[in-house]
Amino acid sequence: MSERLAVRKTYKLFIGGAFPRSESGRSYVVSSSKGEFLANASKASRKDAREAVAAARKAFPGWSAATAYNRGQILYRVAEMLEGRRSQFVAELVDADGVGVRKAGELVDAAVDRLVWYAGWSDKIGAIRGSANPVAGPYFNLSSTEPTGVVAVVAPEAGPLLGLVSVIAPVIVTGNTCVVVASERAPLPSITLAEVLATSDLPGGVVNILTGSAAEIAPWLAGHMDVNAIDLTGADGELAVTCEEAAAENLKRVLRPPAAKVDWLADPGTERMTAFLETKTVWHPIGT
């Protein structure tokens, strides 16, 4: 009896909650760390990036107005769905990242735990970042946090799952929506993660994932006038400078690439959330 032929997955983009191919019709070969063919991934174009920004913008009012409790529950649900697909992600990481099964398991576990950690922040970040201000006058004066808006994220090349989750979760937990350029070398886990997101009650468009060339797509996102901020974690050297320059056009908030190599297993701190938060201060007179 001959061995059954496996049914392979077509890896597409993730835009507005759907899985379209690149409008450009382009794809590129993704190989394992050993150089074996894994799949043809979609190679997103400038137009795909624009579609993704439109989807993220459309999702922003609803997602940013959702209660913090609700956003926390949905992030926790993402963790549950990821946990349920643990073995699939372990296999994908072994292929994509060249790590052993044991290490891959650690990385998937850490990604699940990272989501749970950020889920809990949804209704706490406002308490540590907001303030009641004792102004010198008869005024109620309150500062609170609000999401910045649509955030473009250049995900790290290394860490196709844990790194990816570690840049997406802090952006969306506070109510932002995002367009993510996945690791170019190892994009497949990002699309499998998209399947997790699509089945976690996360509204379509809150996270949009593009695969392809960061050098090609990121500058369009950096210059896009309807993007409010950009995370350049995965952009190195010249690309980061080009993107930061383009981002100046509408004064995007820019999270620069880290100065040193990031240990994604370490305590992430709050910086990735606060980089994409605005502070709003409301005044009201006090009187009878």
Binding site: S131, N133, P134, V135, A136, G137, Y139, N141, S143, T148, E278, T279, K280, T281, V282, W283, H284, P285
Partner: peptide, 20 residues
């Protein structure tokens, strides 16, 4: 970044000021 309700152009050193 700042919303003044039933007042306007109030400033105080304890109160964060800045834009979106």
């Amino acid at each position: 970044g700042v919303v003044w309700s039933n007042t306007f152009n109030k400033f105080d050193p304890t109160s964060p000021f800045g834009g979106y």
